[in-house]
């Protein structure tokens, strides 16, 4: 079996339902976790940029969180969340939160002080300053955080299979336990393709999202 891993194409063709289910779980885990990550992390970053007292603890926790191996995070959450799709989604949301939060915080904080000063001097209210100045100027950095989180979570979602969360990792897990090359490849190759195409696509999208005035000249 291990001799011909490329028979994975036949495996997929013969088991389209299984494959599509795993793929759809994988995509759902990634998309939903990143979506929740954005919804939680961006407001948290705004809050941290406004309330000086919160900035240090929050960024500290986020950087420590990023240092801890994702498998360890996944494992350590089991006693609290149990196993299955939803616990996996919660764990992935936490993982998405970290890079998005850190990028959003840094992005907002690194807006040019002169620009902020001018905008305040013009009489922007707090909300207008955020909406019309800080967020647009931080958007390239925030988007980079979302890109990192998405590609990273496609990878971590392969581990969801180990806590019963499904996804393409399930095929790899089956392939490992039966030493079946076709199954290994049926999980691994699509996951790799998914990760690479997502990275490239988001890289493209980033160029569209960056406000025109911030793009490097000559592009």
């Amino acid at each position: 079996m291990l001799e011909d891993p490329f028979s994975f194409v036949e495996y997929i063709r013969e088991n389209p339902d299984d494959f599509l289910r795993f793929l759809s779980q994988h995509v759902q885990l990634t998309l939903l976790s990143v979506l929740f990550g954005v919804v939680i992390a961006v407001p948290a970053a705004i809050l941290a940029s406004r309330v000086g007292l919160l900035a240090r603890p929050l960024t500290g926790i986020a950087s420590v969180g990023q240092t801890i191996p994702s498998l360890a995070v996944l494992g350590l959450l089991i006693p609290f969340l149990g196993i299955g799709f939803r616990p996996a989604l919660v764990a992935l949301t936490i993982q998405a939160f970290l890079p998005i939060f850190l990028n959003a915080y840094v992005g907002i904080r690194s807006v040019d002080r002169a620009v902020l000063d001018a905008a305040r001097g013009m009489g922007t209210s707090g909300g207008q300053l955020l909406r019309m100045v800080e967020l647009p100027l931080a958007s390239p950095v925030i988007f980079a955080g979302i890109q990192t989180a998405t590609v990273q979570n496609i990878a971590i979602a392969t581990l969801a299979a180990y806590i019963g969360g499904g996804g393409l990792g399930d095929l790899i897990l089956q392939g490992l336990s039966t030493l079946n090359g076709a199954l290994l490849f049926a999980g691994a190759v699509p996951v790799a393709v998914l990760a690479i195409t997502t990275e490239l696509a988001l890289g493209r999208l980033r160029r569209w999202i960056v406000p025109e005035g911030l793009r490097p000249t000559g592009s």
Binding site: D112, D117, A118, A119, M122, P211, G213
Partner: peptide
């Protein structure tokens, strides 16, 4: 404060223009 600032023009060094 917002009304006050809107009634007063403000120019700073290097313009402080919004780059976007």
């Amino acid at each position: 404060v917002v009304e006050l600032r809107r009634s007063i023009g403000y120019v700073i060094q290097q313009g402080g223009l919004l780059p976007h």
